[in-house]
Design a protein around this nucleic acid. Structure first.
Lengths: 357, 357
DNA sequence: TCTGGCACTCCGATTCCCGGAGTGCTAACC
DNA sequence: GGTTAGCACTCCGGGAATCGGAGTGCCAGA
C-alpha cells in the first residue's frame, strides 16, 4: 500500500505536483474551492486556465482533488492532503521569537500537571486549533516514593511519586483497618524496597512475595503486601489517564463548522473523549511526527478532522502524546514543526525535572 | 420592590391568573407561542377566543406576556415566569419511585467527589437540563487530619481530610527542605493539635504561634509552623473550588438553541465557568430554593438562562450549591422539588459520612 | 360583559428567475 | 503534441414575488 502511494508520488509530473501544491495552499488559506482561473492568476504557471483545467481533471481522476458540486472549483481530498504532506510540503521552521517564547513559558512552570496544561494551551493558541496533551496509564512509570495516609478507618489515600516528578494519588478502600503507625512503616518499607521500579514490576514482585511469605506468619509484612497490591491495582487501572484539551472554542469558530448541524456534531465529538483517548493510545507505539487526515482513522473520519501529533518523553520510556486537532483544512507546514517543537520541549522539561531531583 | 410585586400579584383577577398559568404551561410543554384560539380549545375557560384576547392584551400591558412578532401568539416574559413561580405554580412532588432511585444511587457511592459528580449527573438526567454542583473554597471546613509527604527536596504534597470526608491535596513549594522524619512528626503534631478546627482558625492560630514562639528557638516547631502556614494559604486560596457540570449536550439539543448563533453563544457560556462560579458563590449566602430567571442576574440574562438552585450542607456550615441550568422555558414545577430533594439527599449523605467516621 | 365578524398584518414556505462562476469539450493554433 | 480561445452547459445562491395560514385588534351587536 505504501509502495503503491510511492509509485503514485512518482507518477505525477512536476507540473501536476506544482498545481496540486498551489491548490492545497490556496485552499488552506481561503477555505474556498479553487478554480482554474484563480490558479492562472497566481502567476506561478505560464499557462492558460484551459490547460490548467486539464491538469486538474487528471488530478481529480487520480483522487487527489474533488469538486464540492459540479461547476465549482476543486478542493483537495484527504489523499490530496496526504500527497501534499508526504511529497510537496516545505515545513516552515519556527521563528527564533516563537521558540524563545515557548521555552520561556515552559521554563516558568514546575508542576508536571501545569506543564502539561500549559503545553496544550500553547498548542492551541499557536495553532489556532484544538491543543491536546495525553498521558496514559502509569503502569510503565518508575516510582520514587509511595506513601499511604489514613483518611478513615478503612479508607486510605495512596500518593505515588514517579522518578519523572509525576504525582498520582488515589483513595483506596481496604478490607482491614490500618493505624497511623502501620501506614508510616508500610510507606517506608515500600518506598525503600521498590524505589526505581515500575508499577508493573512492583505488582509482580508483590504477588510473588505473597506466596513466599505465606508460611512466615509475619502479619506486618502480610498487611504491607495486601495494601501494596490494592494500591497498585487501583492506581494503575488501564483506564487511568489524563487528557488536556484546550481551545475547543477556537475550532468551533471556523467556517467549516458554520451550520448548526456540523457545529453540534463537532461539539459532541469533543465532549466524548473516549474515542480520542483510544486513538491517541494507539498512536503511542510509533515514534516521530504522526499526521492523520480525515478518513485515515475512525475518529478523524466521522468528524472530518485531522490530527498532527507526536510522542513525548524519552525514547525508552514514552510518556504520552501531544498534538493538535482541527479540520482537514489546516496549515500542515506550520503545524508540523510546532507540534514537533512542543513535543521536544515537553520531553526536555520532564527530563530536566527527573535529573534535577 | 418585592412589595410592589406582591401588589401586582393581587392586582390580577382570578381569570387573568388562570390564563397566565395556562399560557405558561402550554408554552413550556410545546415551545410555541400560544394563541387565543389554543387557549379557548383547551377547555378550561368558558370563553371565546375574542374574550381571551382581551385578557391576553391586558397581561401583555402588565409585562407578563410578549409577542415574538406581531400576529404571533404570546410567550411569557421573565416577569411572567416569575409571577407564575411565586403565585401560580403547584410543585409536583417527586414520585416514590424517583426518590427511591435517587436514594439508592446516592447510597452506593462513597467518595465525596463521586457523590458530587453523581448528584450533578442525576440532576442532569432527571431534569434533562444542565446539572451543576458547586463546592467553594474549603476555608470553612473543619479538618480531621493533615498530612505532609515529600515529593522532592523542597516540594511537598499536603493532604487534608475534612471531618465531612472531603479530601483535598495540593503540592506546595517550600523554602527549606524537609526530611521524611520531620514530615511525619509535623503531620502528627498538626493533626493532633488542630483536629476539628477550620482552616481559617488554624491559620490564625499558626500566625499567633509564630509570634509567641519566636523567642523559644525551637527549630522544629518553627519549621512546623512555617510549613503549616504555607499549606493552609495554598490550599485554601479563594479561587479554589470544584465545579461539576453535567449534561451540556442535552441542553444544546433544545429547540431554543437550534440556530448556529445561539448554539455558539450557549456553548461559550458553558465553557467559561468563571461567571457561573461567581453567580453560585453569590447565591451561597441565602437559604432555601432559589430560582433565577433570565434578566434576574447577569449570567442568566445574556444567555436567556434560568437557574434553579439550592444550598447543600448543614445550615450552620453550608458546603456549596446544587442546581440546574437551562433555557427560561422549563418545567419549574418539576425542577423545584427535584433540586430540593437532591440538595437534601446530598446534605444527608455528607452528614452521614461525617457521623460515621 | 361577552362574542361573532372582519380587516389587517406578518411569517414562512414555495416558486421562479437571473447572474455569476466554473467546467468540459472542441476546434484552431503554434 | 501541447496549448489556447471560444462556447455551451450546469449549478449555486440570492432576490423578488406569491400565497396560505395563523393570529391579532377592533367594532358592533347581543
Amino acid at each position: 500500500m505504501v509502495q503503491k502511494l510511492e509509485v503514485h508520488g512518482d507518477d505525477l509530473d512536476s507540473r501536476a505536483r506544482e498545481v496540486l501544491r498551489e491548490i492545497v495552499m490556496q485552499h488552506v488559506s481561503t477555505g474556498e474551492a479553487i478554480s482554474s482561473r484563480s490558479l492562472a492568476k497566481c502567476g506561478r504557471f505560464q499557462l492558460s486556465p484551459a490547460s490548467l483545467r486539464n491538469v486538474m481533471a487528471d488530478l481529480e481522476d487520480l483522487g487527489y482533488l474533488q469538486q464540492p458540486h459540479p461547476s465549482a472549483g476543486r478542493v483537495p481530498t484527504d489523499r490530496g492532503y496526504r500527497f501534499f504532506i508526504d511529497h510537496l510540503m516545505k515545513s516552515r521552521v519556527l521563528s527564533q521569537r516563537e521558540r524563545e517564547s515557548i521555552d520561556d513559558q515552559v521554563g516558568h512552570v514546575n508542576e508536571i500537571e501545569d506543564v502539561l496544561q500549559l503545553t496544550s494551551r500553547l498548542l492551541s493558541t499557536l495553532s489556532d486549533q484544538v491543543g491536546v496533551v495525553f498521558m496514559p496509564t502509569l503502569m510503565q512509570f518508575t516510582i520514587r516514593s509511595m506513601d499511604f495516609i489514613a483518611i478513615a478507618d478503612n479508607r486510605i489515600m495512596c500518593v505515588i511519586v514517579g522518578t519523572n516528578g509525576v504525582v498520582v494519588n488515589k483513595v483506596i478502600e481496604t478490607r482491614q483497618p490500618f493505624s497511623r503507625d502501620e501506614l508510616e512503616k508500610i510507606s517506608r518499607y515500600i518506598t525503600g524496597e521498590f524505589f526505581g521500579l515500575t508499577l508493573d514490576t512492583i505488582r509482580r514482585r508483590l504477588i510473588r512475595l505473597t506466596e513466599e511469605e505465606r508460611a512466615h506468619h509475619d502479619t506486618m509484612l502480610q498487611k504491607t503486601i495486601a495494601l501494596g497490591i490494592e494500591a497498585v491495582n487501583d492506581v494503575a487501572a488501564p483506564i487511568d489517564h489524563e487528557l488536556y484539551v484546550e481551545g475547543t472554542t477556537s475550532i468551533l469558530m471556523k467556517p467549516e463548522f458554520a451550520d448548526a448541524v456540523s457545529l453540534r456534531k463537532t461539539f459532541l465529538a469533543l465532549q466524548e473523549k473516549e474515542k480520542l483517548v483510544e486513538l491517541l493510545n494507539s498512536c503511542l507505539s510509533e515514534d516521530g511526527l504522526q499526521i492523520l487526515i480525515g478518513s485515515e482513522s475512525d475518529f478523524t473520519q466521522v468528524n472530518n478532522f485531522s490530527i498532527v501529533a507526536r510522542r513525548y518523553g524519552s525514547n525508552s520510556a514514552p510518556l504520552g502524546m501531544v498534538g493538535i486537532l482541527g479540520p482537514m483544512r489546516m496549515e500542515y507546514a506550520r503545524m508540523a514543526p510546532l507540534v514537533d517543537y512542543l513535543g521536544r520541549a515537553l520531553s526536555r522539561k520532564i527530563e530536566e525535572e527527573e535529573q534535577q531531583q
